[in-house]
Design a protein around this nucleic acid. Structure first.
Lengths: 209, 209
DNA sequence: CCTATTATGGAACGATCGGTATAGCAACTT
DNA sequence: AAGTTGCTATACCGATCGTTCCATAATAGG
């Protein structure tokens, strides 16, 4: 019933029963790639267990059903793939925030170990009937980041990082849109060179410091 | 076998047999909404015929299999939903091109009859195993528009629409990315008011005329 | 050794997938 | 009337869907 064995794992203490024979995070990383490329509906259990290198029953025993597996994957995704977003918020000026966010996004697309595009976008633009909870879960994460960015840019407005003629709300939403647009472009097979041009051009027209 | 009855339709000539009793484009529009919201893999035949108001056999007799149906839908999509993109290319300056493209995208999101976001993006960011041809077909359309936009901005550079310090290639790719990002935001439930702010802020920082 | 507990692989579950076939009626043309 | 096509309903096909069951393997504490 309970798939949460993390407490025993992190302590490294001896647990009764047969020990797990696979790397939990490595398996989740493999599942992440499948969800990333094919989407929740397009990622069948057969495809998942093939990529993860475990059997059907092991998947259900270790991670619960498909929805629970996806939530475990999202945890790993935010922990390993979107950490740079939090760093971006800590940058001293609005321009530096934009620069860090966009360069971080660019770096992620350069990493050959991860698929192109964004797993978040994949699950926010469409969802199969019955997968409404997955869609809602992911879009909520999008709302979270938009709120964080808005909050940061309201501070930037108070700091005078950009002319008062610019709306911090507009700049925040535009930055998020530019980031998402960059990720869509990456999904569409746009070259790294062109993606870099998008970022540098955007930063060139960005107002203020 | 042959689902192409358009030649008889457009001529209005008398054909033997019972005439079609449903509106072909209306049925395709209903199918378009299903593909748009749920994606190709998430749009089951049962869901499609339910939305289109026709029977299973009629769907196959009239449109061919699922892939053919999708291609018919894409025809309608480009004919009715993306016509403003061609208009945008005809605008006299680079700024006007950007303005027309973004405002057109915004108008499409305001239309309550069509789903939020973009059917193109839905099918370019992910695809189920076996649906590679659908993915390729859609991403090819994306490449087409990027090429068109690049071509237009190279002309704009020659016209001196923006400072020579800006790369037309970068501006073209950025504009496409901004448009896609706007559509992702719309999919994520961002309000029309906020979408409008994204557009106005982007146009405010856009260089040149 | 035993028992308890957990991990694992293979088989099987009912449901749904895309697609086809059949039968029969409906609505038109010649 | 005869011929042709449109459409619905139903049943069916093999394949795949997500999920569960079960026997077995591998460890722990006793």
């Amino acid at each position: 019933m309970n798939s949460d064995t993390s407490s025993a794992e992190q302590a490294g203490q001896k647990t009764p029963g047969r020990p797990r024979q696979f790397d939990r995070d490595a398996a989740l990383a493999a599942a992440m790639r499948v969800f990333w490329v094919h989407g929740y509906a397009g990622a069948s259990i057969a495809t998942l267990i093939d990529a993860m290198g475990i059997s059907r029953a092991t998947l259900y025993a270790s991670f619960g059903d498909k929805e629970h597996l996806f939530r475990h994957v999202m945890d790993l995704y935010e922990r390993e793939k979107t950490a740079y977003m939090l760093d971006a918020l800590d940058q001293p000026t609005a321009r530096r925030v934009a620069e860090h966010l966009l360069r971080g996004t660019l770096d992620l697309q350069t990493d050959t170990a991860t698929p192109k595009g964004s797993m978040g976008i994949v699950h926010s633009v469409s969802y199969a009937p019955g997968d409404e909870r997955i869609h809602e879960f992911v879009t909520e994460r999008g709302r979270f980041w938009r709120a964080k960015l808005l909050e940061r840019f309201e501070q930037a407005a108070r700091d005078g990082d950009f002319p008062a003629t610019y709306d911090p709300h507009g700049l925040a939403m535009l930055l998020k849109s530019a980031t998402d647009g960059l990720l869509v472009a990456a999904s569409s097979g746009v070259s790294e060179q062109d993606l870099d041009k998008v970022v540098s051009t955007f930063l060139k027209m960005w107002p203020g410091r």
